[in-house]
Design a protein around this nucleic acid. Structure first.
Length: 273
DNA sequence: ATGGCACGTAGGACGTGA
C-alpha cells in the first residue's frame, strides 16, 4: 500500500474515539436525560461524577440495554463515579493510589489501548482548611499517578470534575470570590504542576482563549446570565494528545428541563488504527 | 455582601455543592 502525502487529521466518526465526562448531579434524577444524550451523541466512553448513590442503586441494566458496560464506585448520599464503556474494557483501580480517603471519587479503566481515569476532585470549600487540604492531597496523589503512568509509557486520559478554574478566563466575572477554593492560587499552582508533567489540556490545546464553560450554578439565574465556570477537564498523555481532534462542552444540555448544573464535555481523538 | 437552587437524608431542617 502506497503511503502518500500527509493528510490532515479530520474528525471521522468511523475511526475516531469519542470520550465524554459529565458531572450528572445524581444519576437517579438524571437517568433519562443521560440515556437521551447517549442515544444522540453515541460516545464510546462516558465518565460520570456525582452519581450520588450506592453502587447497588446505580441503574446499570438501563445502560447495558443502551449498549454500555459499566464500572460503578458509589457511596451513600454524596460523590460517586461511574464509567460507561462501549466494547471490551477492564477495571484498573477503584480508588486513587496514594489518597487515603474512603470517598468514592476515582475509578480507572483500560480500554482501546489506553487508561482512562475518571475523577471527582473535592470541592475544597467545606470543612475549613482541613477540607481544602484534602483537595490539595487529592491533586498530589493524582499527579503522582500521572507521573507513574508516564514512566510506564502508558497512554492515558484523566477526565472529570477537577473543581478548578485553571485561569481567570475560566471563571465568569463575579462568579466566585478570590478566596474560593476553585480559584485559589494554590489550586491553580497544583493544576499547573500536573499539566507540567507533559499533559495536554484538551480544551485549551484547540481553543487557547475564550469562554468554554462547563458549569453554571442553579442559583442567581447563572445560566441565563452566562455566569459560568470551566471546571470539567480532560488531560491527555503525549501520544493521545497527538491524536486530539475536537474538544467541546455541550452547552445545549444546560438549557434542557431539569438539567445537571454541569454539561457533558466531549473530546474526540483519532482511532488507534 | 447576603447563597436566592438542587440534591440526599429525612420525615426537620441541614450539609454539601461551586
Amino acid at each position: 500500500m502506497f503511503v502518500g502525502a500527509t493528510q490532515a487529521v479530520a474528525p471521522d466518526a468511523a475511526s475516531s474515539l469519542k470520550l465524554a465526562t459529565w458531572n450528572v448531579n445524581s444519576i437517579r434524577q438524571r437517568q433519562d436525560l443521560v440515556l437521551d444524550w447517549l442515544a444522540r451523541e453515541k460516545p464510546d466512553v462516558l465518565m460520570m461524577q456525582e452519581i450520588k448513590c450506592e453502587t447497588a442503586q446505580f441503574p446499570a441494566e438501563a445502560f447495558k440495554q443502551a449498549g454500555y458496560g459499566c464500572v460503578v464506585v458509589g457511596q451513600k448520599s454524596y460523590n460517586g463515579v461511574a464509567t460507561l464503556v462501549r466494547g471490551p474494557f477492564e477495571t484498573v483501580t477503584e480508588c486513587l493510589p496514594g489518597f487515603a480517603d474512603d470517598a468514592a471519587r476515582y475509578v480507572e479503566v483500560r480500554t482501546q489501548g489506553m487508561v482512562l481515569g475518571n475523577l471527582y476532585l473535592p470541592n475544597g470549600n467545606s470543612g475549613g482548611e482541613a477540607g481544602y487540604a484534602t483537595k490539595l492531597n487529592f491533586l498530589d496523589a493524582l499527579t503522582a499517578r500521572a507521573r507513574q503512568m508516564l514512566e510506564q509509557s502508558t497512554d492515558f486520559v484523566l477526565a472529570g470534575d477537577y473543581n478548578i478554574c485553571p485561569t481567570r478566563e475560566d471563571c465568569a466575572p463575579g462568579a466566585l470570590g478570590p478566596e474560593d477554593a476553585l480559584v485559589r492560587p494554590q489550586s491553580r499552582a497544583a493544576w499547573r504542576r500536573l499539566c507540567w508533567l507533559g499533559l495536554t489540556d484538551a480544551l485549551r490545546a484547540l481553543h487557547p482563549h475564550g469562554e468554554a464553560y462547563t458549569f453554571w450554578d442553579y442559583q442567581a439565574r447563572a445560566w441565563e446570565r452566562d455566569c459560568g465556570l470551566r471546571i470539567d477537564h480532560m488531560l491527555l498523555s503525549p501520544r493521545v494528545a497527538e491524536r486530539l481532534q475536537t474538544a467541546i462542552p455541550d452547552r445545549a444540555e444546560r438549557g434542557l428541563p431539569r438539567p445537571s448544573d454541569h454539561v457533558p464535555f466531549v473530546v474526540t481523538v483519532a482511532g488507534g488504527a
